[in-house]
Design a protein around this nucleic acid. Structure first.
Ligand SMILES: [Mn+2]
Ligand SMILES: [Mn+2]
Ligand SMILES: [Zn+2]
Ligand SMILES: [Zn+2]
Lengths: 128, 128
DNA sequence: AGTCTATTGAGAATGAAAATCAATTTTATT
DNA sequence: AATAAAATTGATTTTCATTCTCAATAGACT
């Protein structure tokens, strides 16, 4: 009678650390890494392990998103379907809308659950 | 009179190790990691540092491509513009053609040099 | 308040990637 | 073919991000 998809996860408790980590991701719209966030939360006395742990929880709970970019994992407060634009010079990562044509892309190999699209180039600032 | 883009790189020498590493990437069409390739080249007595070094060279020289996938760097013998399909269960990564609509995608934020597109889902094998 | 147990954080363990450097191999020059 | 100059190799060390460990702490519930 127990749903295997909701299987025996330990009940989650709310802590001020978890809230602070969540807020830190939401406040910044620049796709920070776990290390970036830890630097920012250090003065509140939050440990590194706690940052990694709660980021994993928040992703699993669907409150934030993890995005793989240039071999590093960045965290994204935007959980809507969207694409990214990335500057190869300054490394900035922006949110951009996902083109409709891409949203509807299908494949014979697998049933598509979600797509990741990133445009790479040189941004306005770095072109000068 | 010296082109700064072709600036004072030490001239590259051809070694049997470099050729073996290149061939190993080309022989496999499954986007191996540096570690995967080292395992395969170990019996030829090729060191780990040499694998990493030459993969970086081969990428810089445009003979192969590095692709960021789920936080790890995989190497790709296919240097044409193409997209990927990835199974979230078995982790396999396939080459698929890049839709024309995506190829022509532009952005106001930056001048697009290349795009990366991956379809994530469950493959035929893993659906069974 | 008291019990139960998930969570925390300091530190240790892991693991991928980069750096070091003496020995070797390649390439250019006699 | 022998020699010299310099790039490459590979065993090893170093770096650094991420995960793990575990005793202490603090939510949640009665
Ligand atoms: Mn985003
Ligand atoms: Mn590919
Ligand atoms: Zn830029
Ligand atoms: Zn699969």
């Amino acid at each position: 009678m127990s749903d295997p998809s909701t299987a025996d996860q330990p009940p989650r408790r709310m802590t001020w650390q978890k809230r602070a980590i969540h807020d830190a991701v939401v406040d910044r719209h620049d796709h920070p890494t776990a290390q970036d966030l830890h630097k920012e939360l250090l003065h509140q006395g939050i440990g590194l392990a706690t940052v990694y742990r709660n980021l994993a929880h928040l992703v699993k709970e669907g409150h934030i998103q993890a995005v793989s970019h240039e071999g590093e994992i960045r965290y994204d407060c935007n959980t809507d379907q969207h694409a990214h634009a990335s500057c190869t010079v300054c490394g900035t990562l922006w949110d951009i809308p996902l083109p409709e044509s891409v949203e509807q892309t299908s494949s014979e190999i697998l049933s598509v659950e979600h797509v990741t699209l990133t445009l790479h180039g040189v941004c306005r600032n770095c072109t000068a």
